[in-house]
C-alpha cells in the first residue's frame, strides 16, 4: 500500500504560563477594582454585594464599566482599562456569561494578570469551559477563575444577592486568601 503525506492545516500555540499569579495578600487597605460591563445586571448585583463585604473587611473598592471594543470607543476602553488597572492592588473581572463577553472578560483579566495584579475572572457555570479555553489560548491557563451558577441573569435581584453572599468566601479563596482567612487577626 502506498502511503501519502499531507501538510498540517492547523495553527497552534504551545507557550503557556501555568502560574496563577500572585495571591491577594490581605484585604485591609487593599485597593480592589471591579470591572463591570454594559450587559449583565446580575453581575452588577453580585459585585455590589461583594464590594460591600470587602469594604467591611477594610478594602477600598473601585468600579470601572467596560464598553464597546471596536473603533474609537474601543481605543478609549483600552486606555481606561490600562489606567484603571494601574491604580489597583487586585482586579476582579466579569462577567463571562455569553460567548463574546467571555472573550472580553478573559482579555481584560489577562491584562491585569500580566501587570502582576492578583486577578480573578468571574464566569457563570455554562461559560466555565469557554473561559478556561480562552485563557489557555491566551497563554495563561492558570488564570484564577471563580464560577457562579448558571443561568444567573434570569433570576430576581434578591436571589442574586443571596448567591453573591454564599459565594463571597469561595471567591476570596479563588483570590488566594484560602489560608490567610483563618489566621488573619481581628481588627
Amino acid at each position: 500500500m502506498t502511503k501519502g503525506y499531507v501538510l498540517d492545516p492547523t495553527g497552534f500555540r504551545t507557550d503557556d504560563n501555568e502560574d496563577a499569579g500572585p495571591p491577594l495578600p490581605g484585604l485591609k487597605g487593599a485597593v480592589i477594582g471591579f470591572r463591570v460591563d454594559e450587559l449583565w445586571r446580575s453581575w452588577d448585583w453580585v459585585s455590589e454585594i461583594w464590594a460591600e463585604m470587602l469594604r467591611q473587611e477594610g478594602a477600598e473598592v473601585r468600579f470601572w464599566r467596560a464598553g464597546g471594543r471596536t473603533g474609537p470607543v474601543g481605543e478609549k476602553v483600552i486606555r481606561e482599562l490600562d489606567e484603571f488597572t494601574d491604580e489597583l492592588d487586585a482586579f476582579v473581572v466579569g462577567l463571562a456569561n455569553c460567548g463574546s463577553c467571555t472573550s472580553w472578560t478573559i482579555h481584560d483579566a489577562l491584562w491585569g494578570k500580566k501587570k502582576g495584579l492578583p486577578t480573578v475572572a468571574v464566569a457563570t457555570r455554562h461559560f466555565d469551559e469557554l473561559s478556561q479555553n480562552l485563557a489557555r489560548r491566551g497563554g495563561e491557563s492558570a488564570l484564577r477563575r471563580h464560577i457562579l451558577p448558571y443561568p444567573l441573569d434570569i433570576r430576581q435581584k434578591a436571589e442574586v444577592h443571596d448567591i453573591a453572599k454564599d459565594h463571597y468566601r469561595p471567591f476570596l479563596r479563588t483570590f488566594g486568601l484560602r489560608d490567610r482567612l483563618a489566621v488573619e487577626p481581628a481588627a
Binding site: T70, G71, G74, G99, S100, C101, S103, L134
Partner: peptide, 14 residues
C-alpha cells in the same frame, strides 16, 4: 483587522 473583533465573533453565543 482589530476593528472586526474576530476573537469575540468566534466566541459569541450569536
Amino acid at each position: 483587522d482589530p476593528k472586526f473583533e474576530l476573537a469575540s465573533l468566534n466566541a459569541t453565543t450569536g
